[in-house]
Write a protein that binds this DNA or RNA. Structure first.
Lengths: 191, 191
DNA sequence: CGCGACGTTGATTTGCCTCAACGATTGTGG
DNA sequence: CCACAATCGTTGAGGCAAATCAACGTCGCG
């Protein structure tokens, strides 16, 4: 499953087969079943994860005990609770597999070692974070701008494959609305 | 005003006086009056900005013609329309000074040159973006979780100095509510 | 088959917006 | 330095998007 990561690295930085051979051992492969948890709120967040295969979600539990999904991550995405990972602190999010998945995990110290031995990796992650922050900026704009219905329209035109891939109550939670209201919106569209 | 940047660099990476002397010329100093625009929607977004002094805001104009503030940036923050900057495309946000300010600007090509000549700068920006993304992740959580009133409470306990520094209608716009409603919330607190 | 998870529908409620009117404060030109 | 305008903050009435609550149909799976 490391090939997926290698291919992704090579899309962003110069890394030959020899580099690849040396970089891979920094990571640990973690297979996941459907619904299996990768990280739970309150746990020490030790790892940064690369999704090699499958689909995960990140969520938190709000004051009323509802699970609020704030991210989906599929192949080639990096994911973790960054605030917690950076400070090697307790996570305030959960991460869970939606499908049978496989992720590559690297802990904080190994990541620092990796930067020391392969300075191109600083560039790689600079690019990854830059793009992630960039996407977050857009995302925040949408959260300010869109009604729930516009949010659904936007999501279903930009990520139609997702509508198939995740159950509707998770989609509702990601779109920050109740399953009931999503159901209402969808029935309106059909007619 | 470059000293502010140097000091910030040295907090994150090893950079001696000689490095500093060479890094500074990559930037252009831009003084700004209160309410002066630094970037407007539709303009090509060429620069990445470091706030050396003052306070800026980033906003967009929504479908109803209202200005929606999505960020404030004060001393030591980097700001730009990242989606546009990365693709050297037209901005979809405005950036404007709230107070008399001073920013350091670097264009895309110079930033790439800077990375080539000073590889530590990749690390510096990796750290900056990582922290920014981290903050965005928390921000998104709050946007999902908080009512308008909770948002106000959270903001006023975490950034009390800001409540003084920015006019109330901008604060309302940042908190994603109408000035009328913010006024109502505040009067409720007083009594 | 039967149970629990998921999706749907409808009635009611509420958080927040819209619109309008009116003080208070700020700024500006004469 | 005052007069007047513009900008900003407040208050209240009415309305709407979306939540809550409850009940019921359906499907996948042990």
């Amino acid at each position: 499953m490391a090939e997926e990561l290698i291919r992704h690295l090579q899309k962003h930085i110069a890394a030959d087969a020899e580099d690849a051979r040396q970089i891979v051992p920094f990571f640990r492969t973690v297979p996941l079943q459907k619904k299996e948890a990768l990280l739970a709120e309150g746990q020490l967040c030790r790892y940064h994860y690369f999704v090699a295969k499958g689909c995960l979600r990140m969520y938190f539990v709000n004051g009323k005990g509802m699970e609020q999904t704030i991210h989906f991550a599929i192949e080639n995405w990096w994911i973790t609770d960054y605030p917690a990972f950076q400070h090697r602190a307790a996570a305030s999010f959960h991460i869970q597999a939606i499908e049978p998945s496989e992720v590559l995990a690297i802990d904080y110290a190994s990541q620092e070692d990796l930067f020391r031995e392969f300075p191109q990796m600083e560039r790689y992650f600079r690019l990854i974070f830059q793009r992630a922050y960039s996407a977050a900026q857009l995302r925040i704009r949408y959260l300010y701008d869109f009604s729930r219905e516009e949010f659904y329209d936007h999501f279903s035109t930009h990520f139609p494959e997702f509508i198939q891939r995740v159950p509707q109550y998770l989609l509702a939670s990601y779109l920050n609305m109740t399953p009931e209201y999503l159901s209402e919106i969808r029935s309106k569209k059909r007619s």
